[in-house]
Design a binder for these strands. Structure first.
Lengths: 338, 338
DNA sequence: CTGAAAGCGCTAACAT
DNA sequence: ATGTTAGCGCTTTCAG
C-alpha cells in the first residue's frame, strides 16, 4: 500500500490529527512542528488520498460542467469551450477540479439530480443551451451552488452570467460614429436570436444617444448563415441610398456580406465599412480583415468560476446577473472617413 | 443528513451488504430481494454517495485529461476539444467521468504525479502537446493507465493514439489521380511539423505506387499560416511548368494558396485543383469550397476512451499504436479532368 | 499547541 | 442467498 497519514504521524512522532492540520494549514500548529511534518512528508513521498479527503470532508472540491457535447460541438461552438477553459483556469487556481459532462436538454435534469444527490460535485456550471424549466426548479429547490453560462431565456431565480450584448451594440455605434460613419445598416438573426437582438438594440441606443438613428429599412434579419448574409447584403445594396457602414450580428453573416459587396466591385472600407462581433479565427481570413467588437469569452469563463467558488463557499450569496465588457478590435474593414 | 445505505437496509429488512450488492449488481442476490431493495431505494430517494463509493472502492471511476488550455485554445485548436468531447462520450457510456485539467508542458509532470499519487483519477489522457520525457518516464515507471492523444515525437513505451497522416496522404494521392490530375504540388509546414511531414510522405508513397512522382521543386515548406501559404503558392506559380493540383498540408496554408491563385486570375478547379486536410468549418468559407481529406476527430476521441477504459480494467494490456482512417470530402476545389 | 477518538458511507472478505 | 464486520484514510470535535 501507499504511505498514509499514519505513517507520516509515526515517522514525525506526532498524532495523525496534527499531520492533518498541517495538511490543511490549520493555524494552531507551531511553525516548528509544521516544518518537521512537512519534511517527513517529503521524505516518505506522502500524498494525501483525494478520495479519502473528499469523503471525510463531505466535499469534493470539484465542479461539474453540464454542456451539449454532441458531434462537431467543438467546431460549431468553440466559444463554449473557451468559456469552459476559462472556468477551469479559475477553478484550478482556487483548488477546484473541473468535470465535464455531456448532456442534452432532455437529460440535463436527471444528470443534475444525480450529481446533486450523490454529491459528486460541490457545484454545477450549466451551459444555457441545456437549461430547462424543471432543471431550473431543481436548482432553486435544492439551493445547490450553480451558475448558468449564458442568459436563460425565461424568468428564474437562477444565478447566471453572460456578456452584455446590448453594451456591445453601443460600442459598435460609438466606434463607427467616431470614425465618421453616419448612415449605418444592421444585418442580424431572427427575433429569437437574443444575441443578435440585443446587439441591434444596443446599436440603436448608441446611435440615438448621439443624435443618429437606425432606419428600419437598414435593418435586415435572416438566418445566421453566410448565404443569408450574402442575400441580405445584396438586397440592401439595391437601395437607392446606400449605408456607409454595415454592422453584422455575427461572423457568418459578415462573410456573406463581404462577398456580396466585393462581388459588386465595391471596396471595403472605401465604399462601405463592415463591422461584426466576436473575434473568431476566420474574422482574419477575409480580405480585408474585419473590424470586430469582441467579447472576452475567456474572461466570461474566468468570472463564472470566481462566482461559482464564491457561491460554494457562501451558499447564501445571491448573484443574479453578471456581464462582461466588450472591446473593439480595429482592422481593415473600417476606416476613418472625412 | 441524507439517507444512507443503512437506512435502506433497515427499511428493506436486510443487511447493508445486501444493499451494496444490489447496488453493484452482484450475482448472488435473488431477484426478489433485489426488487424489494430497489423499491425501498426509490421510496427513500436514496442515492449512494459518490465520495464514499470512490473511497471504499479505492477507485474514482474518473479519468483526467491533461491538455494545454491556454488563452484562445478553443479557437485555435477546436480539434483537441472535439477529441475531448469524444472521449467524454465514451467514458460516460462506460460509467466513467471526465475531469479536465489545464497544464503546460512545464507543469504536466508535477500535475500527473499529483494525480497518480493522490489517486484522484483512475486514468490519464494526455494531449501530446504537453507530453515530455520526464512525464513519459513517470507513466512508464508507475504503469499508470494512460493514453496519449496524438503521436509522441520521441520513442517511448507509452500507449498513444493518432490518426494516420501517412494514410491520409495516400488517400489524397489516389483521389487526385483518380480525378485525372497528374502533376501534383505539396505545400506544407516545416520538418518538425510531423503531421505535415507524414501527409507529404503518404502523398509521395501514394503517387509512387501508381507510377507517379512528386518532384522536389513542387514541394514547398513554410509556416502553417495563411501568409506563408500565399507566398509559397505565389512562388510556385512562377515556375514555367505549373502543377495541375496543389495539396495543402492544412487549412491555413490552403487559405493563402486559394487567395494567391485567384489573385493571379486563375480559376479553381479549372486551372489548378486544390485539396487540403481536415474539415474545419472554414474549409467551406472559401469560394470554391475546398475538397478535403478529413479525419474523424470525434472518432479518435471515442477510440481513445475505449482503449483507456480497457487499460484501466486490464492494466496488463499494452496498446501501443492506434490509428483511425481518413475519408475524402469532395467539394468544388477539385474536378474530374480529361 | 497537540492528541485521542469518533465517525464519514460504502465495499468486500468471510462466515453462515 | 444473505449477514457480519473490518477496514478504506482522512477530518474534526473535544480534551488536555
Amino acid at each position: 500500500m501507499s504511505v498514509t497519514i499514519k505513517d507520516v504521524a509515526k515517522a514525525a512522532g506526532t498524532s495523525v490529527s496534527t499531520v492533518s492540520k498541517v495538511l490543511n494549514g490549520h493555524y494552531s500548529i507551531s511553525q516548528q512542528t509544521a516544518d518537521r511534518v512537512r519534511q517527513v512528508m517529503r521524505e516518505l513521498n506522502y500524498y494525501p488520498s483525494a478520495s479519502a479527503q473528499s469523503f471525510a470532508r463531505g466535499a469534493t472540491r470539484a465542479v461539474t460542467v453540464l454542456a451539449d457535447l454532441g458531434p462537431d460541438a467543438a467546431f460549431q461552438n468553440p466559444h463554449m469551450f473557451e468559456i469552459i477553459a476559462g472556468l477551469e483556469q479559475t477553478l484550478r487556481a482556487r483548488g477546484y477540479r473541473l468535470m465535464l459532462r455531456g448532456v442534452d436538454a432532455a437529460g440535463a435534469y436527471e444528470t443534475a439530480e444525480d450529481i446533486i444527490s450523490r454529491k459528486s460535485a460541490d457545484g454545477l456550471a450549466i451551459h444555457v443551451s441545456v437549461l430547462t424549466h424543471p432543471l431550473s426548479a431543481l436548482l432553486t429547490k435544492t439551493q445547490f451552488p450553480h451558475i448558468v453560462l449564458g442568459m436563460p431565456n425565461f424568468e428564474s431565480q437562477l444565478c447566471w452570467i453572460d456578456n452584455n450584448n446590448v453594451y456591445s451594440g453601443t460600442v459598435a455605434a460609438s466606434f463607427l460614429l467616431s470614425q465618421g460613419y453616419g448612415c449605418i445598416a444592421f444585418l442580424g438573426g431572427q427575433y429569437y436570436d437574443l444575441g443578435s437582438a440585443h446587439r441591434l438594440q444596443g446599436l440603436k441606443e448608441g446611435l440615438q444617444t448621439r443624435g443618429y438613428t437606425l432606419d428600419d429599412q437598414y435593418v435586415r434579419l435572416g438566418q445566421s448563415t453566410r448565404a443569408d448574409g450574402y442575400a441580405m447584403t445584396d438586397r440592401l445594396l439595391d437601395e437607392k441610398q446606400l449605408p456607409d457602414a454595415i454592422v453584422c450580428a455575427n461572423n457568418y453573416i459578415a462573410l456573406g456580406c463581404v462577398a456580396a459587396i466585393q462581388e459588386r466591385g465595391m471596396d471595403i472600407p472605401e465604399d462601405v465599412g463592415v463591422l461584426t462581433f466576436d473575434d473568431y479565427p476566420f474574422s482574419r481570413f477575409t480580405e480585408p480583415q474585419l473590424t470586430v467588437v469582441d467579447i472576452d469569452v475567456r474572461d466570461l469563463g474566468i468570472r463564472a468560476g470566481k462566482h461559482l467558488v464564491e457561491i460554494i463557499r457562501h451558499p447564501t450569496l445571491q448573484v443574479q446577473t453578471n456581464v462582461t465588457a466588450s472591446i473593439i478590435i480595429e482592422r481593415q474593414s473600417t476606416r476613418r472617413r472625412g
